[in-house]
Amino acid sequence: MQKKAGPFFYVFLALFVFFVMFPFLWVLLSSIKPLGELFGDKAFDWFTSHPTLKSYVSVFVNYPFLRYLWNSTVVATVTTVYTVFVAAFAAYAIARLEFKGKTVILGLVLAVSMFPQIATISPIYMFVKKFGLTNSYLGLIIPYTTFALPLSIWLLVTFFRKIPFDLEEAAKMDGATPMQTYFKIIFPLAVPGVFTTSILVFIAAWNEFLFALTINTAEKYKTVPVGIAMFQGQYTIPWGEISAATVIVTIPLVIMVLLFQRRIVSGLTSGSVKE
């Protein structure tokens, strides 16, 4: 249904974009307000006449925010690399090879991806505690497998299925072993899919909250979402710092989304649409 868009449409679009972006916009504007203008009469003014970067400085000076960023980066990167690696083999087999029980396995993967985290948290918590892994990177990477691995397999299977079978047949005719076929033919073609999967898994691991909240409680090992959420003290909430921190974590996301939006959308919709 390719219709021409009229002027009303663009007005609607502008409104829509404004509504979606409003919270960020407001937080951005608040992050450069001096502390005094966050409360009281001036709290509802859109623009401050005394913009300041004090909140940004405070985030790094008064909170171990850099440490949080580093922790999140390490945990999310390692989780992504290792789960996508393991998942790539499984997904290749499910998408390309003939063997019994494939549908059951895929069903299991899908079922596991729907598990509520709360249902696995107590045994996982006891496990990491027993092995002294609380407050460590491994203590998060292991539990993150529960959602990252099924997600990777599910996405990669749909990507692998899109690669034409003829290529594989041709390789087989020429006497290539399945392993050769995988590394020389399938993998290069699957790189975009693997990349997309990695982005989505990375975002999921970066955003995870419950495991990070319960397992890594020491300041030194907190991840960004938990770290920011714990900015709020018992009686006061440092809105200036929270706004600045929110902006800091959102900007890389915005850049990533702008760069990879096509891929992210194809990843998000790949499991749900039959083409």
């Binding site: 829509f16 974009v17 979606v20 972006m21 919270p23 960020f24 937080v27 975002i203 970066w206 955003n207 909250f209 960004v224 979402p225 938990v226 920011i228 959420a229 900015f231 709020q232 929270i242 921190a245 929110t246 974590v249 959102t250 996301l253 915005v254 990533m256 989304v257 939006q261 992210i264 959308v265």
Partner: peptide
């Protein structure tokens, strides 16, 4: 624009 609310950590958006 559509993707940004989805991509931001839920905990952070909740705080926002």
């Amino acid at each position: 624009t559509i993707l940004i609310p989805w991509a931001i950590p839920t905990a952070v958006s909740a705080l926002m």
